[in-house]
Design a protein around this nucleic acid. Structure first.
Lengths: 154, 154
DNA sequence: CTGAGTGCAAAAGATTTGCAGGCAC
DNA sequence: GTGCCTGCAAATCTTTTGCACTCAG
């Protein structure tokens, strides 16, 4: 019976998909449920593992294709790490709409930051070149000072 | 006879390699010549193509390994694009020592920028988290306003 | 001479794609 | 019913690695 009641994530994403002329398949809804169930930043492999853990079976190909769809329609943000790998995070309203990331290399924790001044400097730089910004990447990473990492509270 | 006279790039990189206890092999010197011959930002494939064009034969494996060495010893900067691919640029003194990039999606031109204010904001953010920055990525890209791109002067 | 470095080919990863079948609408 | 979407397996693309050979020091 439970399965007949669309959860609120389903309703949300269904609306977006439909408005884009895309089909609200079981796989897309399931994947969205998984993606939006946490604010963690995950790679494809981890998302697939988490899906399996919750007994949701989608093929790797479908996951790649679905994630592309979500990114394209702005339901998901793709984060490029400096090793060339990608992480994804959902764009639900609980999340700061626009932010950058700073990674602690000691504990792996990813923090989010946003700074208005940086944005306006970026805009000025782009404007000087007659460019209208469409994409931006801004990520920091580093190690804890004194080697003492108190980020994850274990 | 020409080959017996080391060019100035050779001398430069030889010194660095030796000081790091690494061997100054023909391949490394040749690759460095190619890398330092232009201020363009190139990917591995392009560098390999350019090497072949100049009749320098090194294996793809050696190119990857050599580039790693140069990056590790700060002769080369590795730039991560938001599609996860990498570009490389040499760190000769003709180049602004530390800078970020903004890409014009219309003409493919990559411009460099540096802003002190951004740096200090980054440092403040890191400090607040007890983090000492070791890596940073900051890249912008966009399209020309009005669709009129005058960057490359063709 | 000796082992760091190279070339080759095979392996490893990550992502994409062709195609036959399934299901959303 | 129609064709968009999925699953599978194969293909692709980039990068790494094992090993025998080479050459810089």
């Amino acid at each position: 019976m439970k399965n007949l009641i669309p959860c609120r994530f389903h309703v949300e994403v269904e609306a977006v998909l439909k408005s884009e002329g895309l089909r609200a398949t079981k796989q897309r809804l399931d994947i969205w449920d998984e993606l939006s169930s946490t604010d963690k930043h995950r790679d494809i492999e981890t998302i697939l593992r988490d899906l399996k853990k919750n007994k949701i079976n989608v093929s790797r190909a479908t996951l790649y294709r679905t994630i592309d769809v979500f990114v394209k329609h702005d339901l998901l943000t793709k984060i490029t790490l400096d090793n060339g790998r990608f992480l994804y995070e959902h764009n639900k309203k609980t999340i700061t709409p626009k932010h950058d990331h700073i990674l602690c290399e000691d504990c792996g924790e990813i923090f989010e930051f946003y700074d208005n001044t940086i944005s306006s400097i970026e805009n000025r730089i782009a404007e000087d070149l007659n460019i209208k910004l469409t994409k931006r990447v801004h990520q920091l990473s580093g190690k804890c000072i004194d080697g003492k990492c108190n980020h994850s509270r274990n």
